[in-house]
Amino acid sequence: MAEILIHAKELWCSYEEDDRRVPVLRGISLDIARGEYVAILGHNGSGKSTFAKLLNGILEPEAGELVVAGTNLASPDLTDDDIYALRREVGMVFQNPDNQLVATIVEEDVAFGPENLGVPSAEIRRRVDDALATVGMSDYAGHEPHRLSGGQKQRVAIAGLIAMMPSCMIFDESTAMLDPAGRREVIETFEKLNREQGITVLTITHYMNEAARADRVIVIDDGKILADGTPHEIFADPGRLIAAGLDVPQCTSLIHALRAEGVALEGEPITPEECADLLCRALEGKKHG
């Protein structure tokens, strides 16, 4: 097992409404290792975004343990400097692409993070150029952010984090406001970062198709962990996901429906390719059998 980056145990968090405390997270326990690609799946209001906001100190935990990149976020003597140090390690991309870009020029925005860290000028220049190249936005370095598409803006936001060299990136519903093309751009970008640079990626989403691409899926419902496993393990139980207000891949539904009618099918396909393989094998077997 690789080094643990995020450790949560019996984590509780609640918000105040009309002088009442409404619990959002009700005892979350999990460990995420360095270099993992994890999707946190849940419907709106399930607590998945709250969990994400705890991870880099935007919200404070109420009870339980939470250690992220060596910083104990549940500690009573947590200082601003600790959170500052944590945020160098754990970057976050938010939902609305318009509300996280600060500068009027793309490369100036990418430079914002390293400038805050006090990195020397020449080094910032190098990091900004590298970061823009990594997300495929070098040609837009001199553009104004408001003229970019949603997907491009999110890629600039990602470049802004890369330039700070974090070891983990959290995507808090970063694809929810994008069109399918933009969504693809963002997913492909963070998958590349995970694969090539070993950056730990945590994507918070309610799109089942996105979660299915991760190495590990954690389903959160009503502030608790409902399931935690590989996509194949998670989608093997469609009823549980539907009950949690989520979708199931159509191929998975089809296989389960066929099985219910007595067709013998081995395996849990998620993608159409896997599903086609499985069906072809079964039909082939039937011909010979």
Partner: peptide
């Protein structure tokens, strides 16, 4: 949202 995003990018 912008203020939160700026803080998360270590703006002080």
């Amino acid at each position: 949202e912008l203020a939160t995003a700026m803080e998360c990018r270590c703006y002080r």
